[in-house]
Structures are given as structure tokens and as C-alpha cells.
């Protein structure tokens, strides 16, 4: 699980071009949207595509995303429970 969290942080930084953010600066339970990392709706779409491409998870209900993308913790838990890879 810890390795997955580290992997997710690296992917988020790389794919969302968060040049000024390092892996150490993202806590596992930091909110990804709003006051935390400050991601927005376009980033949410990028994360949905990332889930599909890298972990084989298709989000059929976009409302699910709100809970899944709450933090690195929630993302990692969802991926480990639902990824067929």
C-alpha cells in the first residue's frame, strides 16, 4: 500500500505538472482538491483517465470520483480494492 501511495504521488505530480510540489509535501490524508493540493475539475478528468489507463478502473458514475479522489489514502484504497491489474 505504501508503494502504491508513493507511486500515486509521483504520477499526480508528473501528469498534472505540479512543478513546485514534491512527493514529501503531499501527506496521505491531504485533500487533493480545494484547500489541499488545489486541484480543479480539469485535473479530476486527468485523474479519471489515469485510473482507467494505469489501473484498469473505469468510473461509470462520476459522482464516485468525489470520494475516491478525496486524498491519496482514499485513492490508494479504492485502487487496491478494485484494480484488476
Amino acid at each position: 500500500m505504501e508503494a502504491l501511495k508513493e507511486e500515486l504521488k509521483n504520477k499526480i505530480i508528473e501528469q498534472l505538472n505540479l512543478e513546485d510540489v514534491s512527493v514529501d509535501e503531499i501527506a496521505d490524508n491531504d485533500p487533493l482538491f480545494g484547500e489541499g493540493l488545489g486541484l480543479d475539475s480539469i485535473d479530476a478528468l486527468e485523474l479519471i483517465v489515469m485510473l482507467d489507463k494505469d489501473y484498469g478502473i473505469k468510473l461509470s458514475d462520476p459522482k464516485e470520483g468525489k470520494k475516491i479522489f478525496e486524498s491519496i489514502d482514499t485513492m490508494a484504497t479504492y485502487i487496491s480494492e478494485n484494480s484488476p491489474k
Binding site: Q15, I42, L45, E46, V49, K53
Partner: peptide, 13 residues
């Protein structure tokens, strides 16, 4: 590269 799948919005926008 992705065979017309997994298209993200940022570069398109």
C-alpha cells in the same frame, strides 16, 4: 500512442 483511448483534456484545451 493510446490507440485513440485515454485522452486527457489539458493538452487538447
Amino acid at each position: 500512442d493510446n490507440n485513440e483511448e485515454f485522452l486527457t483534456p489539458t493538452s487538447f484545451i
